[in-house]
């Protein structure tokens, strides 16, 4: 690109490295704290851990019921991500192609929901009297539904990028509407769906309030809720808390590292066209 061609590349690197450090250091700091004993932390909080001390992880793992929570987190995240992607992709296609009337109004409504007020009590009533409260399926539906609008919104932008010629080719084929979406559109949307999936994964994995409200059973709680419980219990013991943070964050960071190529290309190309 011409415009910054004159900027010395070393300067660019220096700036980018500084910003990257700003993003990375806080996380490394937490890891450092997690490796310390409480006494060590209280006396010299910022020094590099003198020895690798893994007791905090063991304690966090045990106290936070992390095994059950971990399993639940996986279930909720996987199911609601798959569900969201499927349902959102199905809805995005007709909206984007204006196959139904009132798509404009629908998109407007979707826009408004970005900042609609929550209604915990009404939703709780709904969950309760449909026997969805405190069930795996109920929570999966809830976490899929709660920002379904945003996901559809993003995918609508992506579908616009898929040339409509394909539709015609398919219609000649006599391809059924659903089969067409599932077999032709869905594969073409792969990068977009990866993006939506990652947003959804981040979203569900990190949710800490909804599990408390809609899952009354401790055995059904996900990981972040376990961590949130920790905040109170170990507010005086930052080392264990830090270990808990590391445990919760690591799987997500791994998924991110694995998928980052798609996410970064996907987040951009999708949200734009929407």
């Amino acid at each position: 690109m011409k415009l910054t061609a004159k900027l010395p590349f070393t300067l660019v690197h220096v700036i980018l490295i500084l910003f990257s450090l700003c993003m990375l250091l806080p996380i490394l700091m937490i890891l450092n704290i997690a490796l310390k004993t409480n006494t060590e932390f209280l006396n010299s909080p910022m020094s590099i851990a003198s020895s690798l001390h893994f007791d905090n992880f063991a304690e966090a793992w045990e106290q936070g019921d992390m095994i059950t929570n971990f399993k639940n987190s996986l279930i909720y995240t996987a199911c609601s991500t798959i569900l969201t992607c499927l349902i959102a992709a199905m809805a995005a296609y007709p909206i984007s192609r204006k196959h139904i009337r009132g798509t404009g109004a629908l998109l407007g409504l979707i826009g408004i929901t970005l900042f609609l007020p929550d209604g915990i009590v009404p939703l709780l009533f709904f969950m309760k009297y449909t026997a969805l409260l405190n069930t795996y399926s109920g929570y999966i539906l809830l976490s899929s539904g709660i920002n379904m609008a945003l996901m559809v919104f993003i995918l609508v932008g992506f579908v616009k990028n898929i040339p409509a010629d394909l539709d015609e080719a398919a219609s000649i084929d006599g391809c059924g509407y659903f089969r067409y979406i599932l077999t032709i559109i869905l594969p073409l949307l792969k990068p977009a769906i990866t993006t939506v999936a990652m947003l959804k994964i981040i979203n569900v994995w990190n949710d800490f309030i909804n599990p408390y409200l809609y899952l009354t059973d401790k055995e059904k709680r996900p990981l972040t809720s376990g961590l949130y419980l920790f905040v109170g219990e170990f507010s005086t013991d930052w080392t264990v808390l830090a270990a808990g943070i590391v445990i919760v964050v690591t799987p997500l960071l791994l998924v991110y590292l694995f998928l980052q190529k798609y996410i970064i290309s996907g987040v951009s190309s999708g949200a734009l066209k929407g």
């Binding site: 915990i120 009533f125 309760k128 409260l133 409200l213």
Partner: peptide
């Protein structure tokens, strides 16, 4: 609040 309201 929410649990009481829903009688849960």
């Amino acid at each position: 609040n929410s649990r009481i309201a829903a009688n849960e």
